[in-house]
């Protein structure tokens, strides 16, 4: 119960901090539109005007989930980095809060923030392509994402641990983001990739998330598509274990804190 109170407290503080940065929210909402319209425009040019709105929708949802994946994958890394730069981390460690609670709170805030931005983007996209009748499917996607993003939290913890060892979050997240973006089928079917990259894409959680979200919005989702997500929860378990091992190792090495 105490941990839950701490988690709620940190989430509230993080959301307040995010509320002061409206520009970030606008960017997260604007970016998928900008990029998908850019590629759609190029697609129109390349096909002589035969690019379809459903292809644009495919990329719009893909870019939005990609933004979620990228910001979530790096949220723990940046949480520690910013904490170290501003001196906030010392206060967090001085408080009787488990580091895991602090990191999970940050990840949870990231999930809430990203789902909020997804609702805005998906609602506009659904109305534009399928019509307002399909808006109800957005609610289904919110429920789906709440479950499907759990493995990403595990992935997030793995990236956080890597950052602690490499010190700088940007090179680590830059590399992971590049791999995740290119093999997960966010903006094109992964069948266009070489075989080994297709396998890599299917092993990671993101291709299952983005395909599930698209299918729910288009009304073509089948419950059998949920089955990989049960296995993908393994990422959450592995993430928690690696985080704990990393925490113990680092505390032992540095003596006091992270």
């Amino acid at each position: 119960m105490r941990a839950l109170n701490q988690l709620a407290g940190i989430v509230e503080a993080e959301l307040r901090a995010l509320a002061r940065e409206a520009g970030v929210f606008i960017f997260v909402v604007f970016f998928p539109f900008m990029f998908s319209l850019l590629t759609y425009g190029a697609g129109q040019a390349l096909t002589g005007g035969e690019a379809s709105p459903t292809q644009w929708f495919y990329q719009l949802i893909g870019f939005t989930i990609m933004m979620i994946a990228l910001t979530m994958s790096s949220s723990s890394a940046w949480y520690f980095r910013r904490g170290m730069m501003t001196g906030r981390l010392e206060y967090i460690f001085a408080a009787p809060v488990s580091p895991l609670t602090a990191v999970l709170s940050s990840a949870l805030t990231s999930v809430i923030f990203n789902i909020a931005s997804f609702i805005v983007v998906a609602a506009i996209g659904v109305i534009a392509v399928y019509g307002p009748y399909y808006l109800v499917n957005v609610i289904g996607v919110i429920l789906f994402l709440a479950l499907a993003l759990l493995p990403v939290i595990g992935f997030n913890l793995l990236v956080g641990i890597l950052t602690i060892f490499f010190r700088e979050p940007e090179p680590v997240t830059n590399l992971i983001n590049a791999v995740v973006s290119s093999v997960s089928g966010f903006t094109y079917p992964i069948i266009l990739l070489p075989n080994f990259l297709q396998i890599l894409g299917q092993v990671m959680p993101y291709s299952h998330i983005v395909n599930g979200a698209r299918d729910i919005l288009a009304g073509s989702f089948k419950y059998v598509q949920l089955s990989p997500h049960l296995f993908l929860l393994g990422y959450l378990i592995i993430g928690l274990i690696v985080f704990r091992v990393g925490e113990i190792t680092y505390v032992r090495k540095s003596g006091v804190h992270w």
């Binding site: 590629t39 190029a42 697609g43 390349l46 096909t47 990329q59 290119s182 903006t187 094109y188 079917p189």
Partner: peptide, 11 residues
């Protein structure tokens, strides 16, 4: 790969 295929998905 990402940028190439994002554009060339249309064609």
């Amino acid at each position: 790969i990402f940028f190439f295929l994002s554009f060339l998905m249309y064609s």
